[in-house]
């Protein structure tokens, strides 16, 4: 198939979005492919939200954490926000060029429970991920781990242990 470009690509992506789930409202979440393009263009890391259609813990996290105004401002400004539906057949392109479905990305990333949140380098490489319900304070701490560059020196477990002391 001829690869659509620019506006055509966006239209194609919108038209071919067969299923959608529940990203938190008011946040500029985009598709995986669009997110990786944006991340390369503007140099921001990616915040990847793995949800599932009808997922209770996703709804709870959306309601209780993503309603936080500081979190909204920080994550909207610092990250490219990507939402992936763990049961969707929508296709995406990995940094390697491989085309797989959103569900298959979940299989590769071993998404056992939703929500799962992953922080990615702008080239798509995973920095770390956390599963399950998270609070706004959790997300603010994770942001420090990424935006202050701690992840280059230590893993998330050591960082959190140090921060909790």
């Amino acid at each position: 198939m001829l690869k659509p470009k620019g506006l055509g690509l966006l239209l194609f992506a919108l038209l071919s979005q067969t299923v959608s789930a529940d990203p938190p409202t008011g946040y500029p979440f985009v598709s995986y492919d669009e997110g990786l393009v944006q991340a390369k263009q503007n140099g921001r890391p990616v915040f990847l939200y793995f949800g599932r259609y009808g997922c209770g813990w996703c709804d709870k996290t959306n309601r209780e954490a993503f309603s936080d105004k500081q979190l909204h401002r920080l994550y909207s400004d610092r990250y490219v926000l990507v939402y992936v539906d763990a049961e969707s057949g929508k296709r995406l392109t990995l940094p390697s060029g491989e085309r797989i479905t959103e569900r298959e990305l979940g299989a590769r990333m071993k998404v056992l429970a939703t929500p799962m949140f992953a922080w990615l380098e702008r080239d798509g490489r995973e920095i770390f991920h956390v599963p399950g319900i998270q609070s706004a304070q959790d997300f603010l701490l994770y942001d420090r781990f990424v935006s202050e560059g701690h992840y280059r020196k230590e893993n998330i477990r050591d960082f959190l242990a140090r921060e909790m002391r």
């Binding site: 009808g54 209770g56 813990w57 996703c58 049961e87 569900r103």
Partner: peptide, 13 residues
């Protein structure tokens, strides 16, 4: 429709 299961559990494929 519980907090844990939301509108329901997942099933696929």
């Amino acid at each position: 429709r519980s907090q844990t299961f939301g509108r329901g559990t997942g099933a696929a494929r």
